[in-house]
């Protein structure tokens, strides 16, 4: 998984998600599942029966009646840049951070399924294959040949569409370049969002839209206080939305929609 070419300057891939633009349609979740061969969940699937790499939470400001406001927050692996809680806990190095891309990767083929990383993750962004992956008859034809499906009993999570990264890399090599063309590497969720709420790019490259958006005053990161340097930046002009980045306050939390 480590990038072969060490000469390229290290990238720091990240995302910005404009919460104000998200309408909770769930396209990102579907696109993600299709791209990464995540088996489709039945209607009404729960955390036990279904699996998704990106989860859209519905939040509200806690007010009643006309003052009530709600918003949708997609939560995926935040690709912590520093002391990622899941990396150091894995007993068999099945989790690693690619120094060339900053992407936190999961190797399902080495995973024991101890789920210690899931207990370690404050974002609940890691998912365990409680069941054997299954696709309805005929649907297996739509499987993405670039991504290996995972077996029962291992953990998986968002890896910024690793298959796409490989494809982009191959494209760059074919074009005789050492660096990926940003236009070639766009995760499925970014592509699928009808409102353009998600932007993806190299945070180390100031020219990208993502790097710019990340440093806007209304940007925030989830649980930044934990000191893990997450690389998913959220953005909202609404104060009450920005408050969600902080630690939970009992009593303010309301029911949660799971996409």
């Amino acid at each position: 998984m480590i990038a072969e070419n060490k000469k390229t300057p290290a990238a720091r891939y990240g995302m910005t998600i404009d919460v104000d633009r998200c309408n909770g349609c769930g396209s990102c979740m579907v696109a993600c599942a299709v791209e990464n061969n995540v088996p489709p969940a039945a209607a009404g699937a729960t955390d036990r029966t279904g699996l998704t790499w990106i989860r859209v939470f519905k939040i509200d400001n806690g007010a009643e009646g006309a003052d009530r406001r709600s918003a949708f927050v997609p939560v995926l692996c935040q690709h912590c840049g520093k002391d990622a809680p899941c990396v150091s806990v894995c007993p068999q190095q099945a989790v690693d951070v690619d120094p060339a891309t900053g992407i936190v990767g999961q190797m399902p083929e080495r995973c024991l399924g101890c789920r210690y990383c899931m207990a370690a993750c404050p974002y609940h962004a890691r998912y365990f294959n409680w069941w054997d992956p299954a696709w309805p008859a005929g649907m297996e034809k739509t499987l993405n040949p670039d991504v290996a499906p995972r077996m029962r009993g291992v953990v998986e999570k968002c890896n910024f569409c690793h298959g796409r990264w490989h494809a982009a890399k191959a494209q760059a090599v074919a074009n005789g370049k050492t660096e990926i063309d940003p236009a070639d590497y766009i995760p499925a969720c970014v592509e699928a969002c009808p409102n353009g709420a998600i932007h993806f790019g190299n945070l180390n490259d100031p020219a990208t839209e993502t790097a710019r958006a990340a440093h806007q005053p209304d940007s925030f990161r989830m649980l930044e206080s934990l000191g893990t340097d997450p690389k998913i930046y959220y953005h909202s002009k609404k104060n009450w939305v920005r408050e969600i980045s902080a630690a939970p306050r009992p009593g303010t939390a309301k029911e949660t929609a799971r996409g």
Partner: peptide
């Protein structure tokens, strides 16, 4: 408790000494 008990030896073969 682990999802893949047959891989238990992985911990000895690929130990992450920081865990």
């Amino acid at each position: 408790d682990v999802g893949q008990p047959l891989r238990a030896w992985f911990t000895f073969w690929y130990p992450n000494v920081h865990s």
